[in-house]
């Protein structure tokens, strides 16, 4: 099994590993996958409520090297984007960037799901805290 250099790099030097306080109103948490399937990703974002910009992102992943690389890359990509921009990230872009083989495409799908789940969680919190806040367009 040959891994691309980018997968190897993210596996060996994963970016933004860690956890943030999931009870904080500024933090959205996405937990996707299942241990039985061999992949679980936790992706967290910290959003500036004034600008809707994702100021920080952290992840932890149980999964193969491609799953680790996909989630590591996802945290890099969402940082500095607004939540709506982050929602535009497609799994196919992750596949392309990491040169994932067809058998690993589900890793990229899971990473996209993790971004969406984290944003969804954050939006739900804003909805509860201050009803008017987020929905744009």
């Amino acid at each position: 099994m040959a891994y691309s250099d980018k997968v190897l790099d993210h596996y060996s030097n994963p970016r933004n590993v860690g956890s943030m306080d999931k009870s904080s109103n500024e933090v959205g948490t996405g937990l996707v996958g299942a241990p039985e399937c061999g992949d679980v990703m936790k992706l967290q974002i910290k959003v500036n409520p004034q600008t809707n910009i994702i100021e920080d992102a952290k992840f932890k992943t149980f999964g193969c090297g491609s799953a680790i690389a996909s989630s590591s890359l996802a945290t890099e990509w969402v940082k500095g984007k607004t939540v709506d921009e982050a929602l535009q990230i497609k799994n196919t872009e992750i596949v392309k960037e990491l040169a994932l083989p067809p058998v690993k495409i589900h890793c990229s799908v899971l990473a996209e799901d993790a971004i969406r789940a984290a944003i969804h969680d954050w939006k739900a919190k804003q909805g509860a805290a201050k009803p008017v806040a987020v929905e744009t367009k």
């Binding site: 996958g33 299942a34 039985e36 679980v40 936790k42 932890k60 992943t61 149980f62 799901d113």
Partner: peptide
């Protein structure tokens, strides 16, 4: 790096978690 390890250390029973499978 594992969210499962973190959860187990926090005392979460992984069997009781409702996993959002793909």
């Amino acid at each position: 790096l594992s969210p499962l390890y973190e959860m187990a250390k926090e005392g979460v029973d992984l069997k009781s978690v409702k996993w959002a499978a793909e």
